[in-house]
Write a protein that binds this DNA or RNA. Sequence first.
DNA 1: TTAGTGATATCC
DNA 2: GATATCACTAAA
Length: 173
Amino acid sequence: MKRLDAAFFQRDCLEVAPDLVGKILVHRLPDGTELRERIAETEAYRGTEDEGCHAFRGRTPRNSMLWRESGVVYIYLCYGMHHLLNVITGEPEQPQGVLLRAGEVHDGPGKLTKSLQITKALNGGSFTDGGVLWFEDDGLRPALRTAPRVGIDYAGEPWKSIAWRWIGTKQAK
DNA sequence: TTAGTGATATCC
DNA sequence: GATATCACTAAA
């Protein structure tokens, strides 16, 4: 099984997001158990111009991960209950990332992290340094469809309705 | 449709 | 220190 390396993430988030759909997210627990789930849905958040991106309102302690190098794990707690998992893409100092919205089994960003037991403790880690989180590629290439991003009604046009969300359909290959 | 939840940012 | 906001979910 091939693990995705730094080169995979070191591209524009608009390329990485669709490529990530169909890959397998793995989380190894302290006791050695490996939880895995295939990614079914992603969204791209891109730069300080994107009004839906956390980076739009400037750099803060919470979102500083966006400015890190590709492959960095960015997790934050939303609405007091839900951990949302992102991976940083592109070059350092260029804030962009991909939100993992759903797995094949668990539909919804909060449910995905809950099922894989992903919490803030993993924030600031890396998907590419051989730690407890990584992606695997088993060669599956699901058919994709696009849609506007969810939950960013506060953003103006065109950001609110731009189709930077990718959803894998059942028909694989 | 609305309540719940708590970290974070922003405003005193 | 206080309040408003939020890349959500479950229950109704």
